[in-house]
Amino acid sequence: MNDTVLILSIASAIVAATPILFAALGEIITNRSGVMNLGIEGMMLMGGVIGFWAGNGTGSLTMALIAGGFGGVFLALIHAVLAVTLRVDQTVSGLSLVIVGSGLSSFIGTSGEPSLLSARNAVEVTPLLPSALRDLPAVGPILFGHDIVVYIGVLAVIAATYVLNRTPQGLALRAVGEDPAAADAAGISVVKMRYIATAVGGFGAGVGGAYLTVAIVGTWQNGLTAGIGWIAVALVILAGWRPWLALLGALAFGGLNGLGFTLQLAQVNVPSDFLKMMPFIAAYLVVILVSASPNRARRLAAPAALAQPYSREDR
């Protein structure tokens, strides 16, 4: 097999991993506060369409990502109102975000003359590092050839790990997700924490959707994410709600995209549809294994108060 092909498929796996990573990191923060948001797919679509629109207007990648992030925040706040304030069923509310997100993004994308569907991508994505590094054999394209967002993704993993584990805010967030009543008694505002965490999750998904649209796909299409949001849901479970493992998982899932092609070159014939199943089968098995073994559950399991609404009166 040709080495160049292998190097290029690894490099493209890293790029493909980036939107999944942003969405999964956001969801980890949201989940750690005790809020389950199944609406990632919808938030990514909103981020995608708003990001593409902003990118077209400004030509700036930064603006596209920030606007896309707030597109995700908009939907996430709807979820927060429903799940935190109104304490409705978080599964149902999350699913409704998916439907609203795909409806609203398609509506925005096809409104206006001419619509975003026919618009050309105005955002230019350039590699961050100088060509001296990029042209190094093998490691150049794999590690140094990417745009700034890929590196921000890695920084975000470090930042999320640090904030969750080493700061008072992170401790408060986890306390709210593990035992909201105790956190409340300790003077932490459960409602405020959960709103912030849900909004951060929406921002992550929105940025992921915007990056996917302007930097990877390069056009807007209705339903552009095509299941990537659900892969992020699966990934969060697989990663046991830990940012570092989410990074590894995102790389693996990014790699699955190009793997079919690579395997074909290596004369191994695995249908791409079976590769697409992998993340979902893996998440399915992990949920069962974690539930079945009490010891591992202690290390891997979800935040204790995940998806449970908190009401002071019910303590």
């Binding site: 709807i78 109102v81 429903l82 109104l86 304490r87 409705v88 069923d89 149902v92 509310s93 699913l95 409704s96 439907i99 609203v100 997100g101 795909s102 409806g103 609203l104 398609s106 509506f107 994308g109 096809t110 409104s111 209705n222």
Partner: peptide, 22 residues
Amino acid sequence: INVQVVLLLQGLIFLTVTAGEF
């Protein structure tokens, strides 16, 4: 009229009914 309004309406119904549960 944009045909996507159909999906949007379904989503809005889903949201308001969910909120109504409260």
